[in-house]
Design a protein around this nucleic acid. Structure first.
Lengths: 358, 358
DNA sequence: AGTCTGACCGCAAGCGCTTCCACGCGGACC
DNA sequence: GGTCCGCGTGGAAGCGCTTGCGGTCAGACT
């Protein structure tokens, strides 16, 4: 921003430069070329029924010839209809889960007819970034809806958005009091651990992400705990290992477990990516995965297929899809209360990394 | 807000509904509450030096109390400073490469001080979607710059954007006549294949993605061909297999190679994800990867680490980062010619899936 | 003491568009 | 043959903000 009052011209020049050549054609130009008034030109361009076909044609031609594009600012400001804007807030993008979910979200947001929406991307890795998002959003940008992916929104944040009239939906995170779509992580973990129990395992380890932000209150860990509690084996804290998210973390955690006096016969990892690392360590140690030691993960990440990893699949793309539809419903005027949250089912996929204990 | 008793009220109501509760506070409200004129309020909010500290304080307090947020439309329309908008155009999101690159891009776009930018996400999977993007962009939305990730932009498309004053930069795709950042895929392929050649392999297969859109004109394949041509082994079409991108594709392609009368002793896959599938097939077939058959990929995808896969790493995050900086330079007024394209280096990472032929 | 200089502030003019209203006009009607 | 009607159009009023310009004071000068 230039404060010097003597420099209006300068600012304009900078502006032009910054914005590029920028077609300068305005609605008035189009109207003039078509020999009509701006009002008529506007009506013609907006497909108003009240303009004569011939006139409309003339206006459209003029607009095309001038490479005219409406100024979205002016249009929206003047009360014209304009595409909705939705913010997508994600903590990561390089993890498969988030990318995949976003693909579904995109599909859900654009499916059907309608005017379509613009998607604003906000990558808020850490808590600070998240807080900044919720504080800044109002300050300068403005969206009609926000979908948060994979993390919990606290009440204050939600209230702030609602105050601004921003719809909010959550996908792939914890259950929320507002429209959300997710899976039952607690149950998914139980499916995984129950499977190990049914195979006869008693010493089952937990390999969990140490990042508290991952999957909110760690339902997958409590699912593990509850499954064990029901099954009989008394908990052994040595068998619970927390590691950084990802393959290297899993590999290192598995190493620690192998160093135990009484190593586990099976391992439940809270994510396939962690499980993958564990598998690698086991193989390197010369152990046969699925025979000497069983490993099960969650997600059905592509790596699971490659590793022949038993896992509990969750419908990631679909969570995004459903969330996208929810946003559209909200944007169409449905009351938030009328948009029902959904919990999508998960299911065990049997592959080669699990088997009875040796 | 005064309500005209007649028709306008109806419009307003619809608006309110569509936009949600929407705080109604306008600049005038703030000004009134603070006991100043709108001009002064505006200046105070925009940190203009010409307002008395006490006044500014009063305005800020009023604004906070009213939960006031500027209307970006009005602000931008009136010539106020506003954050730039950049479109990010990607063909996929669930693939690691794109997500990872976008993380770098985000970082590059937001680094340093400056006003920051808004990122509009466009997911254009197929050619039709891409075409639609380049045609639609002008129609309704408006961005200041676009970065295309991982695909080629044809001259007509580029010209269209330039006409509209939209800067464009390319990342992770082919080299372009406009600012772009990428790696030398041809060279990367050579690094991989040369490695196999140096180990003594003569029958080296190519496992390539069949999607012609992947990596544009398939430089990795030609890199393979050229490396072989230089090394001596005469080309054998049986050893060239094209498969759908991904693990399953790689697995199936490897199966085909294994069925050959004279199977290869080494395989070069144009992506780690494909290589991963190949490794799986080999293991299932009871072959020792790295001893009986060597496999090398490209990318240094996380799966490579887990599979202990030899690969040629490319700096994905950094490509995004550099692209983001280029956009900022362009937005700051640098001429496109002054922003030099970059080709980032790749390097071989030796792991366990390659070794001398049996 | 009179003038001058700034610091602060209000006025008003738009930014480019949409929409309400009024208006002219030709045909359908009695 | 004069109304009435409705279609197609232009005029004008904003949407909410920014900013050049000019006015109003308080001190700081001479």
């Amino acid at each position: 921003m230039v404060h010097d009052p003597r420099a209006p011209a300068a600012r304009r020049v900078v502006d032009e430069e910054a914005r590029g050549a920028g077609s300068g054609a305005s609605l008035d130009d189009v109207a003039r070329l078509a020999g009509v008034s701006a009002s008529t030109a506007s009506r013609a361009l907006n497909n108003h029924p009240q303009v004569a076909a011939a006139t409309r044609e003339r206006v459209l031609t003029a607009a095309a010839g001038l490479d005219y594009v409406v100024s979205p600012e002016a249009s929206r400001l003047a009360g014209g209809t304009s595409r909705a804007r939705v913010a997508v807030v994600v903590p990561h993008l390089s993890r498969w889960f988030f990318g995949r979910l976003l693909e579904g979200l995109e599909a859900g947001l654009h499916e059907g007819a309608g005017p379509g929406v613009d998607v604003l991307l906000f990558l808020v890795g850490d808590v600070a970034g998240r807080r900044a998002f919720f504080e800044q959003l109002p300050a300068r940008r403005r969206v009609d809806a926000a979908v948060v992916v994979g993390f919990e929104v606290d009440e204050a944040e939600r209230a702030r958005l609602e105050l601004l009239g921003v719809h909010i939906v959550s996908a792939g995170g914890p259950r929320e009091p507002f429209p959300s779509v997710t899976v039952d992580d607690h149950r998914a973990a139980r499916q995984a651990v129950d499977h190990l129990v049914h195979l006869g395992h008693r010493r089952i380890a937990l390999l969990a992400s140490e990042d508290p932000a991952d999957r909110g209150p760690d339902l997958r860990s409590t699912g593990y705990r509850d499954a064990l509690a029901d099954a009989g084996p008394e908990p052994d804290d040595d068998l619970v290992v927390r590691v950084p998210f990802g393959g290297p973390g899993g590999a290192e955690g598995m190493g620690r477990l192998l160093g135990l006096r009484r190593p586990p016969t099976a391992v439940f990892a809270t994510a396939d990516e962690i499980a993958g690392g564990a598998v690698r360590t086991l193989r390197r140690a010369g152990l046969r995965v699925g025979a000497d030691v069983s490993v099960v993960g969650i997600d059905d990440h592509p790596v699971a297929e490659v590793l022949d990893l038993t896992t509990v699949a969750q419908p990631v793309h679909e969570q995004g899809l459903v969330a996208g539809r929810m946003v559209r419903a909200l944007l169409a005027g449905d009351a938030p209360g009328a948009v029902t949250s959904r919990i999508l089912p998960t299911h065990l996929i049997l592959r080669g990394t699990t088997g009875p204990p040796p």
